[in-house]
Simulated assay, not measured.
Amino acid sequence: MTPITEVEGRRLALSNLEKVLYPATGFTKGELLHYYATTAGVLLPHLRDRPVSFLRYPDGPDGQVFFTKNVPPGTPEWVTTAEVPRVEGPARMVFVQDLASLMWAANLVTEFHTPQWVIGAPGEADRLVFDLDPGAPATVVECCDVALWLRERLAADGIEAYAKTSGSKGLHLAAAIRPVSSERATEYAKELAVEAEKALPRLAVHRMTKSLRPGKVFVDWSQNAARKTTAAPYTLRARREPAVSAPVTWEEVADCRSPGALTVLAPDLAPRLQDFGDLLAPLLDVGGAGVLP
């Protein structure tokens, strides 16, 4: 029998709580739901007012994994949805605005992905992102070297960057910016990616071409495009272990010397929040946003 629980006055059916979703550690769906419930305080502000795309893995990472942007069938009427402009035409998408919506979405077993804009100003980027993706034999260690260079380069333009793990092999950089068109944000990010390749020719590459990437870090600037999304802060990822896309300090980035040094698993996050709070909280401060040159 599927247990029914009440969250903020909403009745939710939470299913298959004993199902193992992460085979490497035995982490269950019940533990996944507990993780999201206890992380909601820092996760929800980063989701609020941004249309959420879902990468679903209901049977774990070894089962079927599929990406959806449209409102899933069976979505409760109390979950916020809205028409969102897209290149291929408008679509109705989900907005995770509160704990009840978060737990409903988590019960679908999903990664949370968001664009760099809010629904009040679609296509107007208020965040700048770089996805640093290592090509073997490069690892997150090389990503950290590139991230430190990008941090200094952004600072030269008056933009403060923050780092988080991708929850996979790489690293994400994010910065709050005064809203500009997504086209301008993408253009600026590409300019810096090209500069990174010139400054670090043995480490960085700004093109996605597979043959260029072994041993280097692909500085993916394209996720600033209006139609693109990035894994949200604190989302779990569909990996063998319950890895989190977790904020890290610049000291941790500078000290990174091994491929697993920055891995953050779900059980690790609560103590990190006690020690550091939300390291990405400055992204929510519009007044502290940088201005693109």
Rank of each mutant, 00 (worst) to 15 (best):
D220R: 05
R178P: 03
S181C: 09
G30T: 12
C143Y: 04
D220I: 08
P179V: 10
P242H: 11
L284M: 10
D285H: 08
M93V: 08
K19R: 15
R227K: 01
M103E: 00
W149H: 09
K198G: 09
W78F: 00
Q223L: 07
W149V: 02
N70E: 14
G170C: 03
T230C: 10
G9I: 09
V109W: 06
M208R: 11
S101N: 03
L173Y: 05
R202H: 14
A155R: 15
F112H: 06
F276D: 09
L154M: 09
C256Q: 01
A37D: 01
Y22L: 09
Y22P: 10
V94A: 10
D275P: 02
A289L: 05
R86K: 13
V71P: 04
P73A: 15
G277T: 06
R56H: 12
R50I: 14
G170S: 08
P259L: 08
F67R: 14
V219K: 08
Y162S: 01
A174N: 05
R202P: 07
M1L: 12
D98A: 03
R127M: 12
R237K: 14
D278F: 04
Y36V: 05
S166A: 12
D133C: 05
G135R: 00
F218E: 13
R227N: 09
V87H: 04
T186F: 01
G290M: 06
P137V: 11
V248S: 13
N107E: 04
A174P: 00
V253I: 09
G89I: 10
L265T: 13
K69F: 04
A199F: 05
V52A: 14
P3D: 11
A231W: 04
P90T: 12
F27I: 04
W250K: 01
V141A: 12
L284S: 04
V291K: 02
T75A: 11
H34S: 15
S245T: 10
V7H: 05
L47F: 10
D145R: 15
T139R: 09
R92M: 05
G26A: 07
E88R: 13
P85A: 05
A105Y: 06
